[in-house]
Amino acid sequence: MPKLNRRQLHDQAIRRRSLVISSASLFAVCAGLVLLVPMAPGWTAVKNSFFNWDVLVKTFPKLLSAFVVDLKIFLWSAPLIFVLSLAIALARNTRRPALFPLRLFGALYTDVLRGVPVILLVYLIGFGIPGLGLPRPYNSPYIWGTVALVLGYSAYVAEVFRAGIESVHASQSAAARSLGLSESATMRYVVLPQAIRRQIPALMNFVIALLKDVALLSFIGPIEILRQANVYKSLMANFTPYVGAAIIFLCVTIPVTRYADYLLARQRRERSV
């Protein structure tokens, strides 16, 4: 083993001491929770209605298959949001007078839809539009719930794209234009690729939020995971299915969140070089 110098020995001692302190405090907190929470007067009731193992085992498979519905809604919403929000960001960026109405619409769109809670959009669009008396496949809550999510999320994501576009330095456009590239070619081949790359960490946060907000559609009909949990809660007079649903969500969102953090950290590292 190589002999450590004075500085390394000092650092090693500090590292050891912090390890001891952090383990001790973690142990104390966990022991406190495990010992103190069961001493609360309502613990047995809470344990039975929220953490009932038998109920969990019985309901988990059905919850899992209901979660597939959430994933499907997510998977077709996400690309639609990507396309619509990009279109809106580009519309807000346009300078051509003929496209002024588009620009105005882009501004109005982001202002109005960012100002309304997504759950309200889901209610208004999900109940309102089928209420017009549309014939059968076109009154599906899957369609109008998706529309509500896409409209609501695109307003936010469009702003992310717009910030990305504005963060690409004007000298990049100047270089592209000086080579003879048109305004639209400059946007497509030079500005947008850099803008999107820069905003990937921010976009990942919206991916996570969307994954969770798909559950809002439970209010207008689709038997997705939250509604399934709701059904079980009523059936068994027990809240454990909600905990099961939370566990399933976490199994997906935690890895995605970690991945987003990793991307963010990597970007920060690259920029500091």
């Binding site: 100047a174 234009r177 000086s178 690729p193 850099q194």
Partner: peptide, 21 residues
């Protein structure tokens, strides 16, 4: 239309302005 003219005139910048991606 400036685009067809620009491609006949090359401009090299002080800060290079290569496309990093």
């Amino acid at each position: 239309d400036p685009d067809p003219i620009r491609k006949r005139i090359g401009l090299v910048f002080q800060s290079f302005n290569l496309f990093p991606h």
